[in-house]
Design a protein around this nucleic acid. Structure first.
Lengths: 242, 242
DNA sequence: GGCATGGATCCTGTATACAATGAACCTGTT
DNA sequence: AACAGGTTCATTGTATACAGGATCCATGCC
């Protein structure tokens, strides 16, 4: 967590005011990148010191993070990075298949040339990043594709729901990825999806999403643990931020 | 709003502590019942005085209400009761058809006897309330049915999403109901749905939901306004709480 | 009449102080 | 050693003070 302190100081020197939004973004990103593992304590004063603001701002940020399902906020207890269970992971994937499938179906044949090119560029970028073994960059490109779908959803309510589900699935992917697996890259999935979207084949687009997300889920290790993880999370003694 | 003050005082005298949750519940309910029309200003100090708490608690409540899409919270401006547009209304209904349809399909043939009886009782209660012209009671029973579906959803992620969508559709139904229409009662819809659930026919259940929600949406007046509503909402001069 | 300008006022943003709760720890006993 | 009890410390809950922004209204100008 302390790595932030430098950039924060830099931004403060640059005259920028840190707001709750900045904190939400930084913490969300850190969770996504597994820099803040599940169960990590997030005391209000500590965060406040890191970001150079008072508890009021931190509290607002934590409340928003809780509504995004990123942290767990319980009365009279420190906020902690959430650790979704295996069951919740499965349910999140199922929900995303439903919602993103519908969004893709609605979007089929309705994307303008600029958006299509933007999507294609991200897909090319993903392949290229995978080729040079740059997994963080590959993830960025992959996420960009799905976030673009959400942003362009003709149904904005579904789009907002999809944004939330993309975040949640990303977190659990990071959590349950098989450790020996270098990458969650599924060659051709995104290209096939984009082709279906371009051709205006709604059902092919929906099926493309379904297949992609099922394959992704299959790459995870969702076999039942002997509660060791859960015990760790519950009894979990000070997995402090280094 | 001031009607609350009495009950609040009563609860305080009874030794109960008012928390942000209470405020959220009360405001949500008031919006649902159209006691707080769209655009109503909700200043923090005023709410604080009504509930006998300080701004800190009110702020938390307002933030939560904003994440529930009940109020609009913009920087440096008073929170206002949200007024979803006609377009958003259509999108909310479409999203709910998708999600509740899936939940119903998942639930088909999986409900235990007690839950089925509970649902049947609410359906009977709805018909009975409609018969004696008690619209508020009818709405309560109708909402109870859908909330039960959400609560029993095997997929809890979808269940939580459905809970949110039920709230949002209820708000826009109250907003856009044709004024001459006494009730949004659709005879037989709920009974047919329950029958499909009991028989375990997933697709019939999904179709029952789809049909029910489409009929409901058709009862609303979603014809494009000449921006009069929007101007009112934007320029909206002090529609104060009496 | 329409419209810009200025100040008074209302309201939110933020920081901080104090109360209250919960966790950690230490101690004494069996 | 295991455990119960109480004490201490860390951390959140709530209220309040002050600063800054937005709104509203009156005034004056075109």
């Amino acid at each position: 967590m302390h790595e932030w302190q430098e950039e924060v100081l830099a931004e403060v020197r640059a005259g920028r005011r840190i707001s709750d939004r900045d904190i939400v973004d930084k913490v969300r990103r850190a969770v996504l990148m597994q820099r803040l593992p599940p169960g990590t304590r997030l005391p209000e004063v500590t965060l406040g010191e890191v970001f150079g603001v008072s508890r009021s701002v931190v509290r607002k940020a934590l409340t928003r993070l809780a509504s995004e399902h990123v942290v767990d906020q319980r009365p009279n207890q420190v906020a902690r990075v959430r650790a979704p269970s295996i069951e919740e992971t499965r349910e999140t994937f199922a929900a995303r298949r439903l919602v993103e499938g519908e969004v893709a179906a609605l979007l089929a044949g309705r994307l303008d040339a600029a958006s299509r090119e933007r999507l294609a560029a991200e897909a090319r970028g993903e392949i290229e990043a995978h080729g040079r073994g740059d997994e963080p960059a590959r993830i960025e490109h992959s996420l960009a594709i799905h976030h673009l779908l959400a942003a362009h959803s003709p149904n904005r309510v579904l789009g907002a729901m999809l944004t939330d589900l993309i975040l949640r699935t990303s977190i659990v992917i990071a959590l349950y990825k098989r450790p020996n697996l270098a990458s969650c890259f599924l060659e051709g999935d995104h290209a096939a999806l984009l082709a279906a979207l371009e051709q205006g084949d709604a059902e092919a687009a929906r099926e493309g999403i379904r297949h992609h997300l099922e394959s992704l889920e299959a790459l995870l290790d969702l076999s039942p643990r002997e509660a060791s993880i859960d015990l760790m999370a519950i009894l979990g003694r000070s997995r402090e931020q280094a």
